[in-house]
């Protein structure tokens, strides 16, 4: 089922683990049908294990300026 709405979260240039903390907070309050689009300045490898364990799926887009966009939604 495609996400009904996308919530945006910009965690660029926050020191670790603040990006992770903000993403977790946003996912905890994310409605089941929505998706979360995260903009971050480095690829958050440790996040992926947590997303997998939490029943989420995600898509990663790498930009030329070094930033990454992670689109996260619940696995159906």
């Amino acid at each position: 089922m495609p996400a009904q709405a996308i919530q945006y979260l910009d965690v660029r240039w926050l020191p670790p683990p603040e990006p992770f903390e903000h993403i977790m907070d946003a996912l905890n309050s994310l409605p089941d049908t929505d998706a979360l689009q995260v903009l971050i300045h480095r690829e958050p490898f440790p996040l992926y294990d947590v997303l997998r364990d939490g029943g989420f799926v995600w898509q990663v887009t790498a930009f030329e300026n070094g930033n990454f966009e992670i689109l996260i939604s619940r696995a159906t």
Partner: peptide
């Protein structure tokens, strides 16, 4: 603070339920 946060985070689902303190 980073170690405290990191090792509590290893508590998995229960850690998230309890609420890990912000770093």
């Amino acid at each position: 603070p980073f170690l405290v946060w990191f090792h509590l985070f290893r508590g998995g689902v229960n850690a998230v339920k309890v609420g890990i303190p912000n770093m």
